[in-house]
């Protein structure tokens, strides 16, 4: 009986999270139309996306009250994810010519 009551309370939280996600989706689209500069628009969009993802992970995937072993697993995953990202971005750097970033000389991608 208590467990069912707890779940009923959780259902209210799920509906609030759903409303927040829908609202933030509209905000994401509207903010993208405001000219904040490319870096500004990317930063704002990714902050909103990260917040939305946190809501999904925290409440729908119950990460807000999960076992220690899951947190340890995700921490390790996060570490390797960041490490991989650094490896990718490191390939953008040219170690032969020094600390100069590679810049494409010709436009080879037609834009439509």
């Amino acid at each position: 009986m208590d467990a069912a009551h707890d779940v009923k309370k959780e259902v209210r939280v799920y509906l609030m999270v759903f409303a927040a996600l829908a609202f933030l989706t509209v905000v994401t689209v509207l903010v993208s139309r405001v000219h904040l500069g490319l870096a500004g628009n990317i930063t704002v969009a990714l902050i909103i996306a990260t917040f939305k993802a946190s809501l999904v992970a925290g409440y729908f995937m119950h990460l807000i009250s999960e076992r220690q072993v899951i947190y340890a697993l995700l921490t390790m995953t996060g570490f390797f994810l960041v490490f991989m990202l650094i490896l990718f971005l490191g390939s953008h750097h040219d170690p032969i010519t020094g600390s100069v970033y590679y810049v494409p000389q010709t436009v080879s991608h037609p834009v439509h």
């Binding site: 994401t28 689209v29 490319l38 990317i42 969009a45 909103i48 996306a49 993802a53």
Partner: peptide, 11 residues
């Protein structure tokens, strides 16, 4: 998809 949408559609 929450990340794909802004990255591919909006930016």
């Amino acid at each position: 998809w929450i990340f794909l949408f802004p990255v591919l559609y909006l930016l």
